[in-house]
Structure formats: C-alpha cells, structure tokens
C-alpha cells in the first residue's frame, strides 16, 4: 500500500463520560513522512490516536487522501500501537506478529503469511528470536515485535503511542530510523506520539502540538519547536537554539506558573 496520500483530521471531538478530551482538533499528517504528536500529559495525544484508529467514539472527519474513512474502515485499515509495554505472556514473537492479522488467519496459517512474518522479524533483527517468548526478551525487542505486528497488518496509516518511551538510546534510534524508512518506502502517514523533544527535532518531518483539547501548531519541527510554543504546550520556559551542525538544541529552564 503506497502513496495513499495525507491523513487529514477535521474537528475531532471526543470525551470520556463528561470530561471533554478533544474539543475540535484538526491537523494534517503528510503521507510518506513521520509526524510527531506532542503535548503535555493528559493533553489528548492517546485519545486523538485512538479516535483516528476508530477505537473510540468521536465526532469529526478523518480523510485519507481524498476519501473520507469511517471508523470501521479505520479499525481494519489503520494500525494503532498502544503505549502499554507489559508483555507478560509466553506467546512467541512469531505468534505476536501473526496476531496482527488475527481476523484473517484461519485455523491453519497460510505458509506465505509465515514467510512474510519471518521477513518482518528479520527486518528488525529479531530473526533468531521468533520462537522466544514475549516475556523472555527485552523491552526494546518487545517494542520491535509489536512494530512488526503493526506492519504485518499492511496498514494504510501507522499510529504509534510513545513507541520509544521504555527504550534505551540505541533502541530509540533503531525504532525511529525504522519508522522513517517505512514512511519513505511505503508512502504512509506515520503518526507518533512522543515526549522526547530532542528526538522529535531530529526525526519528525512534521510536528503537531496538542493543548487544551485542540491542535495549536502544525508544521515542520523548526517552526513548531519554539520557546513560545513550548510555553503554551507544556507550561515551561525553555531555550531553543540551533547548533552549528544544524540540529536543534532544547534546554528546559523551569516550569511556568504555580503548577
């Protein structure tokens, strides 16, 4: 599935009971690029991802390219990877990947499914761990296995909730590099909720900030990651400077206000 176009979200509204989480969020996530979704804890990043994935009742429109996509179509065609990394199961990594197509597996798994899943494990350096239990590999390997599971769904859009939060530096880079390659190779919109701003600055082609239930910024990293925006998004004072190498450098100074 390649070049499906941009993912466009218009006026998304969602609530848990009486608590409004999203009050009309709109954003464009370009196809073929990694977009970072940033914002404070509780700003609605996970809710936005789940609503786009069709896993949460929400009003508003979601378009992929020129076609509007219903929640049922999104549940089938979009891959969403939850944040939870507790993997205390003895399912093997191979079984975890296969479960990406759980609704289409049939009792006897077709041989070409297994070959395809093996290819994905190899892509993330997990070839030797296919029969290893989820509970017996490291957090980074677990995250890569779930990434392979998401790709095994052959998604039109990839939505990931903090895929690097539990990982060491090396695995953070492996995962983000893989996402960049994937977006470029397959032309998918890849949306990643992230907290680590230096990584955002380095890996995201496009950044969307969420605050107060709506999107307050959306553009390339350099335009969004400004001291003013960080104050609005996180309530912090920070210094943003550009290094000689061209990379952004963000120095958090102190929390603003009484919080």
């Amino acid at each position: 599935m390649s070049g499906a176009g941009d993912l466009v979200v218009r006026d998304l509204r969602a609530a848990y009971g009486k608590t409004t989480i999203l009050s009309g969020a709109s954003a464009t996530f370009p196809g073929g690029k990694v977009s970072a979704l940033i914002g404070a804890n509780g700003s609605g990043k996970s809710t936005l991802l789940r609503a786009v994935a069709g896993l949460l009742p929400a009003s508003g429109a979601v378009r992929l390219g020129d076609t509007e996509s219903s929640p049922a179509e999104r549940r089938q065609g979009f891959a969403y990877m939850p944040q939870d990394v507790s993997g205390f199961s003895s399912l093997t990594l191979m079984e975890v990947v296969l479960l990406g197509r759980v609704t289409r597996l049939g009792f006897q798994v077709p041989q070409h499914f297994i070959a395809e899943a093996e290819g994905l494990l190899a892509r993330f350096g997990l070839s030797d761990l296919g029969t290893r239990a989820l509970s017996a590999v490291s957090g980074g390997q677990r995250q890569l296995a779930f990434l392979a599971q998401s790709l095994f769904r052959r998604p039109a859009v990839l939505l990931l909730d903090e895929p690097t939060a539990a990982l060491d530096l090396r695995h953070q880079l492996i995962v983000l590099q893989a996402l960049q390659d994937l977006a470029a190779d397959e032309g998918l919109p890849v949306v990643v909720a992230m907290h680590d701003l230096p990584l955002v600055a380095q890996f995201a082609h496009h950044v969307v900030g969420l605050a107060g239930g709506t999107t307050i910024a959306g553009d390339d990293a350099r335009t969004v990651l400004t001291a003013d925006n960080l104050a609005r998004l996180y309530g912090v004072a920070a210094e943003v400077s550009e290094l000689e190498t061209g990379h952004l450098y963000i120095t958090p100074l102190h929390a603003l206000g009484s919080a």
Binding site: A53, P82, L99
Partner: peptide
C-alpha cells in the same frame, strides 16, 4: 490467543 496480549492490543488488531 490475542487476548493474551492484553485488551488494548487485542482491540488494536481488530478484535
């Protein structure tokens, strides 16, 4: 089998 991934992940793969 997918339920062993936890509810959130089982829902995410379409269950």
């Amino acid at each position: 089998t997918a339920l062993r991934l936890g509810d959130a992940r089982a829902a995410a793969v379409g269950i």
